[in-house]
């Protein structure tokens, strides 16, 4: 076991997979430097044919990944900030996600699209967004969004080895989160569709994603002193979703709180609440609550940014309402 922060753990995971399979290559903007350092210096080890610094052309980056995948390669493209996925949304939604289906199953596209997302350091409206709802909505994509460092590298292993397109979201605040990961070249895949129960509890089921997972565990620990026993679940993969774990928890607690950084309208959290309401209605003792960002863009000014995304007191207030 090695203790590493996520920047280096993810880098090590990429290295492991590139060593294991020559078909794996990285493609994106400024990878040799690595905007968040995840890909830094990998070109020294694997050469610039496998760590491709592209022109600033997101459509071309994703097109390159899709094209190369159709001829048998395993591309790991990076979009520097998740917000820029819009610049290649056609490639993601109309090409990559549907190609296998439209072509009658003739091909599969083993692409892992890595994207740093979420707020950090007042990056403002075009560099702070949570885009998971756009992506989970698209048939043909799998979406990983881990808030649990221990599993993040293993999920990247699974993503790269998966035959289908996988969106791999990395919350920028979590790069400094550290965990024990496997020894060199021994990082084991973590299966998709298996949630992580970060904290067991019997009173309330709290599903959180991304950077809110750690925050919610802390809040739950603090609430335990007041005699409230909250179960915190990190789904790890938003699709496929581990409904078993979530349903079992809701059957136990009868109460559901979902905390995500996305603005609430049309959010992934709404999808979760709707399936729980439909499938486990009789288990619910109270109406589920979602805590998310306001339905506004993310403002630059520090007090506004802080107010727009869920604050600790918003989460606590929701817990008290469910109690």
């Amino acid at each position: 076991m090695r203790n590493m922060n996520m920047t280096f753990a993810l880098r090590d995971t990429l290295r492991q997979e590139m060593k294991r399979d020559e078909r794996v290559f990285l493609v994106g903007e400024d990878l040799r430097q690595g905007t968040f350092r995840v890909t830094v210096d990998l070109h020294k080890e694997f050469g610039e044919e496998r760590v491709i610094d592209t022109p600033i052309s997101e459509k071309a980056v994703m097109g390159a990944a899709i094209g190369a995948a159709t001829v048998g390669l395993i591309p790991v493209p990076e979009i520097m900030f998740a917000d820029f996925f819009t610049c290649c949304f056609d490639e993601i939604m109309n090409q990559m996600a549907k190609m296998r289906y439209m072509f009658g199953g003739q091909c599969s596209l083993p692409i892992t699209l890595r994207m740093p997302c979420g707020i950090s350091r007042q990056a403002a409206a075009q560099h702070s967004q949570s885009i998971e709802a756009f992506l989970t909505h698209i048939p043909g994509l799998k979406v990983v969004y881990s808030g649990t460092a221990k599993y993040t590298p293993g999920l990247l292993v699974s993503a790269i080895r998966d035959p289908d397109p996988v969106i791999f979201l990395e919350h920028k605040k979590l790069y400094r989160d550290s965990a024990d990961i496997g020894d060199e070249d021994q990082i084991e895949p973590v299966p998709f569709g298996k949630a992580c129960v970060r904290r067991e509890g019997k009173d309330i089921t709290l599903v959180a994603t991304g950077a809110y997972v750690n925050d919610c565990v802390k809040i739950a620990d603090a609430m335990a002193e007041q005699g409230l026993d909250i179960e915190v679940i990190d789904p790890l993969t938003l699709f496929p979703l581990d409904t078993d774990t979530i349903y079992k928890s809701v059957e136990k607690t009868g109460k559901l709180l979902v905390v995500t950084e996305e603005n609430l309208r049309g959010a992934w959290s709404g999808e979760l609440v709707s399936i729980v309401a439909q499938d486990r209605f009789s288990a619910l003792k109270k109406a589920p609550i979602r805590v998310g960002a306001l339905d506004t863009p993310i403002a630059f000014s520090p007090p506004l940014e802080e107010y727009i995304v869920p604050r600790e007191k918003d989460i606590v207030q929701a817990i008290m309402a469910l109690k």
């Binding site: 600033i56 917000d83 820029f84 819009t86 610049c87 007042q122 403002a124 409206a125 075009q126 560099h127 863009p297 403002a299 630059f300 000014s301 506004l304």
Partner: peptide, 24 residues
């Protein structure tokens, strides 16, 4: 009004359509 910051700075009355965070 502090909503934009460095990358979203406009003054439309003066014909300034804004800095931009999205290249191109």
């Amino acid at each position: 009004k502090g909503r934009g910051g460095s990358m979203h700075m406009a003054d439309l009355e003066k014909g300034i359509l804004g800095t931009n965070g999205i290249l191109g």
